[in-house]
Design a protein around this nucleic acid. Structure first.
Lengths: 142, 142
DNA sequence: CAATAGTTTAGAATTATTATAATGTAGATT
DNA sequence: AATCTACATTATAATAATTCTAAACTATTG
């Protein structure tokens, strides 16, 4: 999604009513240089603290899921008890820093093309996602 | 873990006390031909129904986590709101059938070697896991 | 500008998981 | 073998993440 654009139009295009809350969320999520990762909790904090906007937790859940369904957000499963979302909706892989719990995007050049030999009859591949878990290397420091 | 073996010894080897509950869990998990995937809930059902053994939910959680820490089980993150465990603790990739919510192991030959170019200074790679999501292909059925 | 269909909201409900504290038990010590 | 002690198990309470509910609200349609 381009920045500083008319989020109202964008929302309408995919059939989401451009409500105050949704526009506010678009601003928080997409008016920035780079894509980023967040949890629902992060987002609630950002909206209430940064934007000084009262918003119901249920609305944040609803809206995040609405955005996800419409392709504005992507969910990433790393941690079994926390949902991470990514404003980068293109197919890409991740590093996950187990020390800091930070999620790092990979770009095309970071991972060689992945070739999947296995085919499952009657099923098509929806996504191919790699998660590379890293942690501080205290052993091999030369 | 070999089948029909002395689970008591196996548990002791890694410093886990061979309690009634842990031995029962070993039987359920490892007295079988193939490795498999399960959720905590699946396991509770298996123990209570198949084995006719009363076991506390807390014990199942404790024991699964003890087994995980000792390398008897591996956790797999697919779904943000459910933890899956795998009795196959070797490094391997998965297919996830989004229709049936079934998890399918890949073996060596299913995926070509994955080459990771990106390096993060001071960090070592702990694991490289691929998840291939599939779903029924209603379009391209020739 | 009224109707209506979708949205927001606070709070309750649900679900998965972890903590607690009492009781039980495996393995070591006598 | 009886006793001790540290670790385990248990039922239940607590917590955390998420979803549901039903009433109030609001964007769009006519």
């Amino acid at each position: 999604m381009p920045k500083n654009c008319n989020f109202i139009e964008k929302l309408r295009e995919v059939g989401l009513r451009p409500t105050k809350q949704r526009i506010k969320m678009c601003e928080v999520l997409y008016n920035r240089e780079k894509t980023f990762h967040f949890t629902i909790n992060d987002l609630v904090k950002m909206i209430s603290e940064q934007m000084n906007q009262k918003i119901s937790l249920a609305t944040v859940y609803n809206t995040v899921h609405a955005f996800e369904k419409k392709g504005y957000l992507k969910e990433i499963s790393i941690d079994s008890h926390k949902s991470y979302f990514d404003t980068n909706t293109s197919a890409h892989h991740h590093f996950f820093d187990e020390d800091t719990h930070e999620l790092i995007d990979c770009d095309e050049s970071d991972i060689d093309k992945i070739n999947i030999r296995k085919k499952i009859t009657g099923k098509k591949i929806n996504s191919v996602e790699l998660l590379v878990r890293v942690a501080s290397d205290n052993q091999t420091q030369k």
